[in-house]
């Protein structure tokens, strides 16, 4: 990717020795609902204190994993984690709809650009937005936009 994601606000200096974070750096981990990993106990589940959202990954955590991936020279993996960090904000159904819209001949150029705009403005997801814009450009060149009769 050419477009780089905005760096997380405080960028911890993580390296291979910090992995696995679930063992070595629990202090950095929070659920999207703000709970520490240690709060996700069976007692809490039985008490009904844990909801499905507590078992999701937080965008900040994906940024941490991106830093780790970069520290071991895996820039593409890191870029994937940064796109993923952005997508945590997008509801499941909408993620699936966006994926389906990116299938060949599923969308017009305008439809793809609307998705990109939506990602950028509504979800503050510039890296994902750029990926969709790039797709729109390539699809146009390779005749993979939706055809009229479809």
């Amino acid at each position: 990717m050419r477009v780089s994601a905005p760096a997380p606000q405080s960028r911890p200096d993580l390296g291979p020795a910090d992995y696995p974070l679930s063992v070595n750096r629990q202090d950095l981990l929070r659920t999207p609902t703000g709970k520490p990993l240690s709060a996700l106990t069976m007692n809490a589940v039985v008490a009904g204190e844990i909801v499905a959202d507590d078992l999701r990954i937080a965008p900040e955590t994906l940024q941490l994993q991106a830093i780790l991936a970069e520290s071991v020279q895996r820039p593409q993996l890191a870029a994937n984690f940064r796109r993923a960090a952005e997508l945590t904000a997008v509801p499941d159904a909408e993620v699936l709809a966006m994926y389906n819209a990116l299938r060949p001949r599923a969308s017009s150029r305008d439809e793809l650009l609307t998705i990109a705009e939506n990602l950028e403005s509504k979800y503050h997801a510039p890296v994902c937005g750029a990926l969709v814009r790039e797709a729109a450009e390539v699809y146009q060149r390779r005749d993979l936009l939706a055809r009229e009769e479809d």
């Binding site: 994937n80 796109r83 952005e86 997508l87 945590t88 993620v95 299938r103 969709v132």
Partner: peptide
């Protein structure tokens, strides 16, 4: 396409 699959890869990671 490579772009739909890349998006899907990020969806899983997300």
């Amino acid at each position: 396409t490579p772009w739909s699959k890349s998006f899907l890869a990020s969806a899983y990671a997300s």
